[in-house]
Amino acid sequence: MANGQGQAGSDRLIPAATILLLRDGMEGLEVFMVVRHHQIDFASGALVFPGGKVDKLDMAPAVRERADGMDGLDDWEFSMRVAAIREAFEESGVLLARSEQTGSIIDAGRLKGLEHYRDPLNRGEVGIADFLAREGLRLAGDMLTPFAHWITPNMMPKRFDTRFYLANAPEDHLAVHDGSESVDSVWIRPDIALREAEEGKRTIIFPTRMNVEKLGHSPNVSHAIETAKKTPVVTVEPQVTKNEKGEPILRIPAEAGYSVTDEPLSAVANVAKPKAG
């Protein structure tokens, strides 16, 4: 993985992280996705995974004292995983954390009592280290499996350096959108998400679509996580070029393991709102 240094336009890259929360549904693997608020300047109205920017408080030394499974990570990768867990809590209400007293993942009852922290964390009024210390919690970083790494093309005015992680969602945690950054949410099979996007019922931007499709190769949570553990993550920074017809395209590396390597630039740039009906 690249660490955000030495990339083209790296001084403008915004570190970000996202989690693909997974569960086994009645008909196969499901992933939790939220619909972005239409007033948000990036991917507005799109179906995305919970996630967001790394906060400077995610890098506080005190966080390391309350994190499981993240020993030996450099500051960059550590902060990404902290941000992924924090953002999932803020946006979906799912918290990958253990009770310091029991060593077990917190249950639904305990989670309900922590609900009031979601907004203060989102607004930066409470840092993640203070939250964990107050409530006697430890981040379950060992529940995260690296899945993908995408960097926004350098033609874009706002560029993100984003890590994608897989996590098996605790069974009794009720995932629900926050009502501000995201206005709707759904547990959905990857094939259904792709079909509804094809039919114009949903908007899914290119990186999300590629990772939904990649996830869809697994029939269940266990397979998805085990496959990710065995598969090296290849950084994807789409390059603007032209195909043999002279049409502008985005090209991604074949070794990243996605079904396509070229995407028409018009399809990427034209993120239309879903059709009515």
Rank of each mutant, 00 (worst) to 15 (best):
S92E: 04
A46C: 15
R110M: 10
K56Y: 15
A16S: 14
E90V: 15
L20E: 10
D41G: 14
F49C: 13
G52C: 09
G93N: 00
H38T: 12
L114W: 01
I85R: 00
G72P: 09
G25I: 06
L22T: 07
D71M: 08
H37P: 01
L21T: 02
K112C: 09
A88E: 10
L29I: 07
E30T: 07
G51L: 10
I106E: 02
Q101G: 00
V63N: 09
G103N: 10
S99E: 12
G113M: 09
L22Q: 08
A67P: 03
E65P: 04
L73V: 11
L21Q: 07
A108R: 13
E65Y: 07
D41A: 14
L95W: 01
L47N: 03
T18A: 12
I14K: 14
G45V: 06
L57A: 15
D24R: 06
L95M: 11
A84N: 03
E100Y: 06
I85K: 00
D24M: 06
E30G: 05
R86P: 11
G28A: 13
S92Q: 03
G72Q: 08
L114R: 00
I105L: 13
L111M: 08
I106W: 04
M59P: 00
Q101A: 15
G52A: 06
A62P: 00
M33Y: 07
L22C: 04
K112D: 12
E90T: 10
K53D: 15
L95T: 05
T102Q: 08
L22N: 05
R23F: 09
A46W: 01
P15M: 01
I106F: 04
Q39Y: 13
D24C: 09
A97Q: 03
G52Y: 01
D24T: 10
M59Q: 15
T102A: 11
I19A: 04
A46K: 04
G51H: 07
L47H: 08
L111Y: 00
D41T: 14
E90M: 10
T18M: 01
R81Y: 08
E90D: 09
A62M: 06
P61M: 02
A84T: 07
A17C: 01
K112F: 09
D74C: 05
G28P: 12
A46F: 05
L114A: 00
E30D: 10
G103P: 08
D107A: 15
L96V: 09
R110H: 05
Q101P: 00
S99R: 12
I14D: 06
L22F: 11
L22E: 07
I40T: 13
I105V: 15
M26N: 11
M26I: 11
K53F: 12
V48Y: 04
A16M: 09
D58F: 07
V31E: 09
E77C: 04
L47C: 07
G113W: 03
G28F: 08
S44F: 11
M59S: 12
A17K: 00
S44R: 12
Q101W: 05
S104Y: 13
P15L: 01
S99G: 15
V63L: 06
G45K: 11
S104L: 14
L73Y: 12
E30H: 03
V94S: 02
L29Y: 10
G45D: 12
G51A: 08
E115H: 13
V82C: 04
I105C: 02
I106R: 02
